[in-house]
């Protein structure tokens, strides 16, 4: 099953709509609830990042019997130092983003904890792709 969602630039109110939809799909497929939660938490963190730190983009999801492969692809400033960004507490979030309760520098480490495979690719000035895979069984 292949699914795609658009992430609209600056649209914080709808941040999480892709995650919400995938959550429903996985529930319908009778995936174990703790695995669903791991998938959804990771995708939500990446979705919020694409709005908080970039100019939106898209989410693709490929689900087969054994795994879900998610890609969050944004247009944005990119991440100059991915190792720095992966460390807990590191953040460049703006005051507006902090006012919404984000910007603790916990998102990427949290993604890493929740997925089975993570690959972050980023080109400064172009954008970032966060690829996450979770075993469903």
């Amino acid at each position: 099953m292949h699914l795609e969602y658009t992430i609209v630039e600056g649209d914080f109110v709808n941040a999480g709509s892709a995650s919400s939809s995938i959550k429903k799909t996985l529930k319908q497929l009778n995936v174990n609830p703790s695995i669903v939660k791991r998938v959804v938490v990771a995708l939500y963190e990446a979705e919020v990042n694409a709005i908080a730190h970039a100019y939106g983009g898209k989410v693709t999801a490929d689900i087969d019997a054994g795994t879900i492969l998610l890609r969050v692809i944004d247009r944005g400033p990119g991440i100059p130092d991915i190792d720095w960004a992966m460390q807990e507490g590191n953040s460049t979030a703006s005051p507006e983003v902090r006012d919404m309760g984000f910007g603790a520098g916990m998102g990427l480490p949290n993604i890493k904890k929740n997925v089975d495979r993570l690959n972050v690719q980023s080109t400064v000035g172009v954008g970032t792709t966060v690829e996450m895979e979770v075993n469903l069984a």
Partner: peptide, 24 residues
């Protein structure tokens, strides 16, 4: 009051007490 903090709780399902009152 930190959203990412609330997302680190794994398979625990506590009541959430927060001063952050937004759609997020």
């Amino acid at each position: 009051d930190l959203m990412s903090d609330i997302l680190t709780l794994g398979d625990n399902f506590p009541m959430i007490v927060t001063g952050l009152c937004t759609m997020q």
